[in-house]
């Protein structure tokens, strides 16, 4: 397994208490695979990725527990120098807002070349040549002109291409894309996703894509992990998560995808209520308050992860994890009528 994340927890110490942003999540990514992490804002998806990148390391008020292994080597306990060597070279990351994610007073070329100079000891001249090639790879127009421009002179879509060029400069094993299309025009979103897919194939890298858009997940994912209130509540291959959804939250997410055949005049589906307070996460399932199938037990105890289709897949040798979901509905003791009612809804 390329990347192995086990029991990762992230807590922010604030003056009013600690925010449990990520609560004991585990997942893994294999070579060349795409994992999509799906969830609404504030569910801890970005935080977990930044923790994996070690971006919180110099912040004293952030507690990180668990383990992150790349090629079997622990990342969380690396010393600073080693961490710098891995970031940008073996794992790289692109962010939500390309406009603010690039240094406003530095030329595009310099910002890309910097990665090559740091990790591959390129000379400046070489690095600039390479930067142009990298930009061409991202299908940007007039790459040789772009290198001499500043971020404010480019559009959001172009800047996200620059970010991508920068992140693939050292041919990383894993690219983490944190909502790479959220801040962009809809027309550009599609192009960026296409580009990511193509590059992933060309460079044979793994991709972790963070999104709140089930549509994007369907388009990109091999595996899907659905996060809610700091926990992964459903995890599995795209097909089984989509067609054989194991968690009421995932069902609601799916139902809220706008569809072309949506009846006119009928309001779009929304998930009522708001996510729980992460200062004080509930003892039981965090979704209880918003769940149509909530049972007494749900409020008391967090469900274990139930494997849903162990008979079908779970061939551990190929590395694709079995489909599992954290919901009491899958418990053997759960009354039949509830299970049936759950299966009936879309």
């Amino acid at each position: 397994m390329l990347l192995d994340v086990n029991h990762l927890s992230v807590e922010f110490q604030e003056s009013q208490g600690s925010i449990k942003a990520v609560r004991n999540i585990s997942f893994s990514v294999d070579k060349g695979e795409t994992l999509v992490i799906l969830g609404e804002s504030g569910c801890g998806k970005s935080v977990s990725m930044q923790a994996i990148m070690g971006l919180f390391h110099d912040q004293a008020n952030i507690n990180i527990k668990g383990s992150v292994k790349l090629h079997g080597h622990e990342l969380l306990t690396l010393n600073e120098q080693k961490r710098h060597q891995i970031r940008g070279k073996q794992i790289s990351m692109i962010f939500q807002d390309p406009m603010s994610s690039l240094n406003p007073t530095m030329k595009i070329g310099d910002q890309i070349a910097e990665v090559l100079i740091t990790h591959k000891a390129y000379a400046k001249q070489e690095a600039w040549q390479e930067a142009i090639l990298l930009l061409e790879k991202t299908r940007i127009s007039d790459a040789h002109l772009r290198v001499n421009q500043y971020p404010f002179e480019l559009s959001g879509g172009m800047l996200q291409r620059v970010m991508i060029a920068m992140s693939i400069a050292c041919k990383p094993d894993i690219l983490i894309a944190d909502e790479p299309t959220t801040a962009l025009d809809v027309s550009v979103q599609e192009q960026i996703l296409d580009l990511l897919k193509t590059l992933q194939a060309e460079e044979a890298m793994s991709l972790i894509l963070i999104t709140h858009d089930f549509g994007v997940a369907c388009q990109m994912a091999d595996q899907v992990a659905v996060m809610y209130a700091g926990k992964i509540i459903e995890y599995g291959a795209l097909d089984s998560v989509f067609y054989d959804t194991g968690h009421p939250y995932t069902k609601k997410l799916k139902a809220s995808i706008p569809r072309l055949d949506h009846p006119q005049g009928k309001p779009l589906t929304v998930i009522e209520g708001s996510p729980p307070d992460l200062f004080n996460p509930p003892k039981g399932c965090a979704f209880t308050a918003r769940c149509d199938f909530a049972m007494r037990i749900c409020n008391k105890k967090h469900p274990q992860a139930y494997t849903l289709n162990s008979e079908k897949t779970s061939d551990s040798t190929h590395g694709s994890p079995s489909h599992c979901a954290d919901c009491w509905i899958h418990d053997d003791d759960c009354p039949k009528p509830i299970k049936t009612a759950y299966r009936k809804i879309k």
Binding site: D4, N6, S26, S28, Y235, Q304, A305, T307, S314, P321
Partner: peptide, 10 residues
């Protein structure tokens, strides 16, 4: 293959 969630099932 490591899927920690499933181990609880055992």
């Amino acid at each position: 293959m490591t899927t920690k969630q499933t181990s609880a099932k055992t």
